[in-house]
Design a protein around this nucleic acid. Structure first.
Lengths: 245, 245
DNA sequence: TTTTTGTATTATGTCATACAAATAAAGTAC
DNA sequence: GTACTTTATTTGTATGACATAATACAAAAA
């Protein structure tokens, strides 16, 4: 059996800055530092660890990059609550994700849409319903009776759903996933955009809204599954390579 | 008379390194650089942008921290595919997430469990089923007939489900969420661990497995919803603050 | 007294230079 | 051609200096 070798760092292949970073992490843990606490200044760390200010700065810069600390002139460095989504964002901005990662992310979005039904029903307010209604009505006027996807409308409707979840991490995650979604959508094969639904009954935004208004999470999930069917079809037909098996 | 100072835009407050980082990003985009491409050396950038090597290094270090580039001595810097989960990981390691973010993440995990049913049914193999069977059987031997949660068993079973998804981003995401899950689990109020199910019928791992074996995604979802009911109950009863409304 | 303005202090930000360390590439011996 | 040694190059680290911004506080003005 292949044992998990996930988080074991090779011995002493660490650069000086790596070591400094580890020591800093230790220091934070030992002193049980919390958000808002300030930490010693660069020169003090440098002296205490016996390395140059350069090494300390590089280590601290890493922490700043992942959002664990913030620095202000004269004031020094302060521990901050890291913005976990922001790091995601930054990495994505560089358009360096491979095909596989993009597909993974696309799937992730479908999973989220399917999984958040219970949250929606628990947290929906009348205001949410009203605003969704407005969105849907506007879309109905705009669109002809065709089933063609308008990406803009998709985003408006589904984005509003995420807001109802009242889970800001989830929301920001979705914001982040949008560019990927767009990318995959734009690169859709032509036929995909007028997809024929297996069971004939296409669930529209209006349908979803009505269910959200009057029905329950279970019904909503299955309706959403139908609504997303073209996406699922495409995804589930991709034979994924199994690189790490 | 004292004039109103209403409409004057603050001038750019970017640090030099910030600007350098932006220029680097531009450079990558303009030259349409891809994974594996190598970029000019630090001194060349420094000269080209008219700043010190220090500034360049700090900007590049940021990129290295988020995993967009890798550096090797003598060889220089090479664009790499960023590991989007890793950044998440690093931020979490410092235990600086606030209560709200933790709850968000916990919710996210429930959402994932609920949402991934279709992937499971599309990708399950006989091997997956067999191994799950083994896991469940072992658990049945271990546990008495009580319904008490054994965290270890939860992880083994649900972790295996994530593997079936064959979405490595999702899997790593789940690995990452585990500590948070543990934390919330450990801090559970005492009564929560022997939760009474609303409809009397508690869905066990065995039940889930049988459904995965013989039934369909829809049934699986609702079974999972039941299985996760105690967690949902706790989450959905939390009145979340609405900081940004 | 209150408010504004100047000034000193201090920690981070940036620069310049030098050297250490790793290693790809070239060279050398066989 | 292979194995070993040397060289050149690029990043990694150290040091010292100065710039910049935020802060506290003193001084001046209202």
């Amino acid at each position: 059996m292949k044992t998990k070798l996930s988080k074991i760092t090779p011995l002493e292949n660490l650069s000086l800055v790596d070591k400094v970073e580890l020591r800093l992490k230790e220091y934070f843990k030992e002193n049980d530092l919390k958000i808002g606490d300030s930490i010693p200044k660069e020169l003090e760390f440098a002296e205490a660890l016996g390395v140059s200010r350069t090494a300390i700065r590089e280590a601290l810069l890493r922490l700043r990059t992942i959002g664990v600390i913030e620095s202000k002139k004269r004031k020094g460095m302060v521990l901050t609550q890291p913005d976990i989504i922001q790091n995601f964002e930054k990495a994505i901005e560089y358009n360096l994700l491979g095909e596989e990662a993009l597909v993974d992310i696309f799937e992730l979005r479908l999973i989220l849409e399917m999984g958040m039904a219970d949250l929606l029903f628990a947290r929906k307010t009348q205001k949410d319903i009203d605003e969704l209604d407005e969105i849907v009505s506007k879309q109905e006027q705009e669109e002809t009776d065709t089933v063609v996807f308008s990406l803009k409308n998709e985003i408006a409707f589904h984005g509003r759903l995420y807001e109802i979840s009242n889970n800001s991490t989830l929301q920001r995650f979705q914001d982040l996933l949008l560019p990927v979604f767009n990318y995959v959508h734009d690169n859709m094969p032509k036929g995909a955009k007028d997809y024929k639904y297996s069971k004939g009954k296409f669930v529209t935004h209006r349908d979803l809204l009505n269910i959200l208004k009057n029905d329950n999470a279970e019904t909503f999930r299955e309706a959403m599954r139908n609504h997303l069917e073209p996406h699922f079809e495409r995804i589930l037909n991709i034979i994924k390579s199994h690189p790490n098996l």
